[in-house]
Write a protein that binds this DNA or RNA. Structure first.
Lengths: 191, 191
DNA sequence: TCGTTAATGGACATGATGTCCATTATTGGG
DNA sequence: CCCAATAATGGACATCATGTCCATTAACGA
């Protein structure tokens, strides 16, 4: 374990971390998650390997920050757009994924890694849970429905990123809402 | 790459492979996919490491066979039960997963590995695709719906395996069909 | 300016991978 | 039942990644 984490304010620290992040993205893009080592990241970032370990324990840990950024960005965007209705996050997330299509494909494609997917899954589950909190009032089924919807969303998004389906983000979002609406109906306590 | 694969009929080969399979399952159960090495498998199976490599290139490759077995077992079971209607595979798969609950949890839990999940995902996608072939006649949306349904199924199943939800397989299956039925309705070409 | 703190790179220990080979045993067909 | 064919074995190697440690150097900012 790192004995002491470098203080965030120092310029050197910021420079180092930024360099590592950028190198990470670059490497994910052209090799996929599993096919590069900490050493590779350091080489690309022009940072000493021992330096890496004073900041992060892992490749994974280096990745985490990025996902947290995404999460807050989505929350902010959603709040700003003021769109009502459940599952409003989908639009922003789909758009972002399409903008970063190459990166997302690298992350979910054959050369991907476990961590990445798990993190993303957690992100989506959290978003779905929050958005459905109001809609599905009661019952143990709540978690089941959340799982159902989140899983459906993730796979639909993944599908939409693949080459064969040249589908615009808005269409994907519309499709998602079309398909999911009746589910929410069915999941509502039988009134 | 292995120069020559051992002929399947030889008793020694069968014994070796069986031992390796069993060791693999045992290790997955008590350490999770990532936390053991080829060496560990060999030790547990009491097989020389060099022997391992004459049969398989990887841990992964060793795993593959098991999934193929599962697939054919499901197909056979479904055919035997003669249950009609789309997505009939779900019942059998859910039951199997619940019977092998510990194993499935080890495979999908925090200590899991990428390969495992991907393989399982492929399995489910295949099943969903086949079962929906008749139901969703036309359109490019077909693949989207398959992804939607498969993703939903996988996550619902995963949810049902977790401790908190003590849900019987039949209930899970019923829930799945309840939730998915309206989706299939919505996905049908607008008649 | 100067004390503090980060970066550096090289050295180590460790452990996994995959390959190769000479030797030993088991096997199954003739 | 014997023997040629083929698996299994285990140890040796080369390679590579990981994580830790340290003495030295450079950059920072108060």
């Amino acid at each position: 374990m790192g004995t002491k984490l470098p203080s965030t304010s120092d310029r050197r620290v910021q420079r180092t971390r930024r360099a590592l992040r950028e190198a990470l993205v670059a490497l994910i893009l052209d090799r996929g998650w599993e096919a590069f080592s900490v050493q590779d990241v350091c080489d690309r970032a022009d940072v000493g390997r021992s330096t890496f370990y004073t900041h992060f324990a892992d490749k994974e840990e280096l990745l985490v920050g990025g996902f947290e950024d995404l999460r807050s960005a989505l929350r902010a965007q959603l709040a700003a757009s003021g769109r009502p209705g459940p599952l409003g996050f989908s639009r922003g997330l789909i758009e972002h994924a399409h903008e970063q299509r190459r990166l997302f494909l690298a992350l979910f494609g054959k050369k991907s890694g476990l961590v990445v997917q798990r993190r993303f899954r957690d992100l989506v589950f959290g978003l779905v849970r929050e958005d459905l909190a109001g809609v599905l009032a009661a019952g143990r089924r709540t978690d089941a429905v959340i799982a159902f919807v989140a899983g459906a969303f993730i796979e639909l998004l993944t599908w939409s990123l693949e080459a064969r389906s040249a589908t615009a983000p808005e269409e994907v979002d519309a499709l998602f809402h079309d398909l999911v609406a009746p589910v929410l109906g069915a999941a509502r306590p039988r009134a």
